[in-house]
Amino acid sequence: MKRSPFIPSTSTGPSRPTNASSIPYAGRRSSTPRTGQSNAEAAKFNGAANGEESPYLRSFGSSTSDGPISGADRVWHYATGDVTTQSGSVGQWAIRMGRRLVDTYKVPVALFNGAHGGQPIAFFQRNDANPDDLATNYGRLRQRLQAAGVMAQVRGVLWYQGESDNDNVPVHVTGFASLIQDWRSDFGTAVSGGSRYYVYQVRTSPCGNTTAVNLREAQRRTRPASPQTGRSS
């Protein structure tokens, strides 16, 4: 398969997908990388995504929140979209996006889902004293990327989270600013210009309520931290 001009290959090895680009999944749900809450976790609710699976879509380890289980899974798996928190699970959002990248650019893609439903922004923060802390969401994802040998080649991070911050704008804005600063220091250090970050506003009526109006407005008004950061409404 040819390489896309803007999706570089990672280093290769006996158990590593050749020319795989690395896209960690950050997301969480208002219940929350990709990373963030449940909309990023993208579990199966209606309809199947198994038709999007491909031998050119891989994931490393497991998205489980159990630290010891996460730490023990250090193997590449075929990516799957219809199950969560299991080896190779990436969610339906990621598997669909990954398949379109494979079909369009003819490159293998590595997907990492670090989302966890129903968690506030504090749940996703790095433990600065121990960035690889398996007791933290950040540490589990970071360890998976390191063990896969792709942390420096991360091309993009997708983030959807906010509902579980209960419209507490200062807490969310401050927490996200800290989180993206840590991502920038850890991810994509070998990528020219750095990793790309795609930030999604919470929905107008997330999870059946309308209590996130102020937070949604704050997300809209927040200026991207750099040209490598994009926002979607």
Rank of each mutant, 00 (worst) to 15 (best):
G139M: 09
A148C: 05
V191H: 00
V199I: 13
V75F: 06
Q92I: 01
S195A: 14
E53A: 13
Q125M: 01
K44P: 05
T32D: 09
N113F: 00
S87C: 08
D82M: 09
Q161T: 02
S232V: 15
T136R: 03
T229R: 01
P170Q: 09
L179V: 09
C207F: 13
S164H: 11
V191P: 01
R16S: 15
I7Q: 04
A135C: 06
S205I: 00
V213W: 00
S65Q: 13
I23G: 03
R29I: 12
A40Q: 02
A110C: 03
R220M: 01
D66L: 07
F123K: 12
I23V: 07
T210S: 11
T204A: 12
S233G: 01
T229L: 03
S87K: 04
D182W: 02
S9V: 03
S178K: 15
P24H: 00
N209K: 10
T222G: 04
Q219Y: 10
G193R: 02
D73C: 08
V202F: 01
R231T: 08
L145E: 02
Q92K: 04
A177N: 15
T174C: 04
D165I: 14
E53K: 12
I95K: 02
F6G: 07
H77K: 12
P120E: 06
I121V: 10
A40P: 00
P55G: 10
I23S: 07
T136D: 08
T10H: 13
R28H: 15
T18M: 14
R100F: 06
Y25V: 12
Q161L: 05
Y198F: 11
P55Q: 09
R96G: 06
N127S: 05
T84L: 15
T136E: 06
R155N: 08
W76Y: 07
N19Q: 02
N50T: 15
R74W: 00
P5Q: 02
S70C: 13
R29F: 14
